Simulated assay, not measured.
Amino acid sequence: MHVGTGREWTGDRVPLRRRRWCGEQYDLQGDEWMTSEVTSSVLILDDEVIVALDLAQTVEDAGFAVSGPFHAAAPALEAIEHAPPRAAILDVNLGGQNTSRDVAIRLSDMDVPFIFLTGYDVSGSEVLESFPAVERVSKPVDMAGLIDWVQRTMIR
């Protein structure tokens, strides 16, 4: 089964019936791509496929809709403009010189709360230095703590 990456799923974990990658939703029952507009969702931006899919499944298992997950800032920004999320989980480093800074700026401009996933200290990242008041979750991710943040944020 392909999940938008061209790679076959070989994990021992059974994926959700529907899984999204890069803003498209893949229906595992058929081989059709479909999109959905969800405005009360949690946007997920992480360049690591397994991490992103695990985050998405964990958020959905907690009862929340997911926008994404997205692997790069550009498709995440498009999704934000199309259907703004209620909250967002952003990986700071998106591979190479790419970061989630532009997404964080846009979400901040829209007053959408977000949290950073990172292995960096504040002093080691321009993105974190730009948003010192934003909460961070260190990698490896404490999923229980992250879901607690999502719950607190979505209830506001």
Rank of each mutant, 00 (worst) to 15 (best):
A62P: 07
L146F: 04
S130Q: 10
E81G: 15
V49M: 04
Y120M: 14
V150L: 00
G63F: 02
A62K: 04
S108F: 08
T118Y: 00
E129N: 09
L128V: 10
Q97M: 15
D47V: 00
G145C: 05
Q97F: 12
P132D: 00
D61C: 01
E48I: 04
V112Q: 04
T35K: 09
R136S: 11
E32T: 14
L146R: 05
T10M: 08
L43M: 13
N98R: 15
D61F: 02
Q29Y: 06
D142I: 03
G30N: 14
I44A: 00
S41D: 00
S123Y: 06
D47C: 07
A88E: 10
A62G: 02
G68L: 10
S130N: 11
N93I: 00
R19W: 14
I50R: 13
G96Q: 06
L45V: 15
A88G: 14
V112I: 13
D31Y: 05
Q25V: 15
H71W: 04
A76Y: 05
K139D: 08
L28Y: 12
D121S: 15
R17D: 13
E129V: 08
R152F: 03
D54R: 14
D148S: 10
L28H: 12
R152G: 14
I155T: 15
W149T: 06
V92H: 03
E32Y: 04
V59L: 09
P140N: 09
V66W: 01
G145F: 05
A76S: 09
V14R: 13
L77G: 11
R19Q: 14
M110K: 12
A79G: 06
E37D: 13
T58K: 08
F70K: 02
S123I: 12
P75M: 00
E129L: 14
D47Y: 01
S138C: 07
W21G: 01
V38S: 13
L55C: 01
P15F: 09
A144P: 02
V103Y: 07
V127I: 11
W9H: 01
E8N: 13
V137I: 13
I147N: 06
R13P: 03
D46M: 05
V92K: 08
T58R: 11
V103H: 00
G95M: 07
A62W: 01
T99L: 02
V122Q: 02
V51H: 09
V59A: 06
E32I: 10
D109R: 10
S100A: 06
L117I: 00
I155F: 11
D91N: 03
D102G: 01
G30M: 07
V38Y: 05
D109N: 09
H82I: 09
A87Y: 06
V103S: 11
E24H: 10
A87P: 05
I155M: 14
K139V: 07
H2G: 01
G23S: 11
D61L: 12
A133S: 14
A144H: 06
V59G: 05
A87V: 06
S100Q: 11
